[in-house]
Write a protein that binds this DNA or RNA. Sequence first.
DNA 1: GATCCCCAGTCATACGTATTACTCGACCCG
DNA 2: CGGGTCGAGTAATACGTATGACTGGGGATC
Lengths: 332, 332
Amino acid sequence: MPAISRPTSKDVAQEAGVSQSTVSLVLGGKWSGRVSPATARSVRDAAERLGYRPNQAARNLRLGTTRTVLLMVPTLSAPFFGPVYTGAARVAARHGFGVVVSTWPDDAEGPADSPFGSEEAIDGILASSMPVDVLGRFRETPAVMLDSGPGGGVPTVDFGVADGMRAIAGHLAGLGHRRFGHVAAAVDQWTFRARAEALAAVVAGLPGGALARGACAIDVASAKDAALRLLSGPRPPTALVCDDDLIAAGAYKAARALGLDVPADLSVTGFDDVLLATALEPELTTVRLPAEELGAQGMTALLGLLEGRRPASRVLPGELVVRASTAAPRSG
Amino acid sequence: MPAISRPTSKDVAQEAGVSQSTVSLVLGGKWSGRVSPATARSVRDAAERLGYRPNQAARNLRLGTTRTVLLMVPTLSAPFFGPVYTGAARVAARHGFGVVVSTWPDDAEGPADSPFGSEEAIDGILASSMPVDVLGRFRETPAVMLDSGPGGGVPTVDFGVADGMRAIAGHLAGLGHRRFGHVAAAVDQWTFRARAEALAAVVAGLPGGALARGACAIDVASAKDAALRLLSGPRPPTALVCDDDLIAAGAYKAARALGLDVPADLSVTGFDDVLLATALEPELTTVRLPAEELGAQGMTALLGLLEGRRPASRVLPGELVVRASTAAPRSG
DNA sequence: GATCCCCAGTCATACGTATTACTCGACCCG
DNA sequence: CGGGTCGAGTAATACGTATGACTGGGGATC
């Protein structure tokens, strides 16, 4: 029970000795030629004095818009999505929009479980790293998909993960590697399928190329197990290509457990370039994905969509970052 | 220009052949003894058929509540705050509340820069890791502070960081360490002041105890520099106590640069127990802070506050997690 | 001096919902 | 058979804002 209720535009009107309409005109900035500068000033003073803040609910109702956008991500606990939010929020704020986050893990059934139920006050949706079909339930709402691959009709912003993976594979091949192990994230997302396909294509085109695949969850322990399996065969790979920086950390642990030195005995690569990549020792060769830029570009596209434009889908290139975890294989 | 407008309760009323009031009564669940079951069913059917969703803005205006809470954190790019959000959102969803995130870095001047300007549609504020005085501007709004120390009158939920730090210091002292280096986060937050004071108190009470302090930003490179400075003195510390797991990663790098083995030549401890702690080699001895629980407890308190209760402030204990980065000092 | 126009505002209304106060018919009871 | 009661639903209203339609008065124009 909030005993104290905030002042309304009517209160401001009374304080300034004008009508509510005038207050609304002045504070809305639409008063050029309709209200005298003196009156405008006195209205603004009154508003200031009372600490007036327009009631958003009333404004939304009147305008039929909420100036709020929903950002849907699988989770905020993974280090990757924080920057996506940051980039999106920055662009949104510049246009007077707010951002609501909703996490929607793969295993949840739908909006009923998420805060989405109470979040219908939304102008558009920015969905990151989602299966395309989740948007089927929101056809009514303008949407842009991020990091989700070609979308069925909706504008998208994606990373050039295939190019990134080709860069990694090329880098390793150039160092002389031929036997690759792919420590692959067992997650049904477009980005991981694209990475796997690109790697397979490069290795297939390589004379004497061999590729083994070990699947794991995106956590250190699971990745370590998968890497151990890959490394314990008869002719083990000389390079482990990991789908993710965190997975690469697991590969490091596997190498250490087997007494292998990185990179002398085994090259390891990651993907994404999160903080972890430079915290590891040796520092990780990986592909930097501009996560913050993804959020920013996605929000730009969505705001364009809300204004009736039809934004073009975009692809943001990743950048190969060579650090200390890759070297020529020992046996030439 | 959304050409298609969503159906309203009036449309549902027409479809079902009743009045708008009846629709509202039925869908609001307040119809026991006021509407016949048959009519109620037909209303629900009509709503289903039209895909009716109540307009949140209108509802908010009418009820004077938004069922939305603002979570204010310094940044989402740090791995720590994702789980805080997750915990808060889980509890909120269970009560039909949504959560809006606003990042408010130390260096921003105020709400004008943040999405906050357009986010006045808020019932309460959950502010994490903030200087207490930022809430001065929102006295009107019910608030709970997280991880911010004793708050001036507002309910708080904090970690027992002092106890946590005492556990770390006690653990190291028990191993025989006497000369400590504190790699301290140069961030003006309550939690870091509390950590520093607790460590200093323990060392001061230790016969022959010595404590050197090196300040750094919360990133690997800066932490490495600070650790190097601490280790290059005449009688260097045998244990580095770091304010943060990420800082500990910097300490690892410093140790490696100097040819010191962790933990044989140098013990290192972290704080928080984020993912990184187990990704490092050797795995890090640290204090686990239940971040998700912080968000959950904070939200519980805030929702209580909104219902007129006066929730008690709480302290969540941290837990010492001993891993492989600490051992007895070499020179006994 | 009458007409027109424009400046500076105000009036009235609509947005979609929740809820209070009311109506109307049927049934029950004496 | 009349009055009371109850069940089932409706009419009316308020929440606070933004805006198109309107008004009144003071020049300017001829």
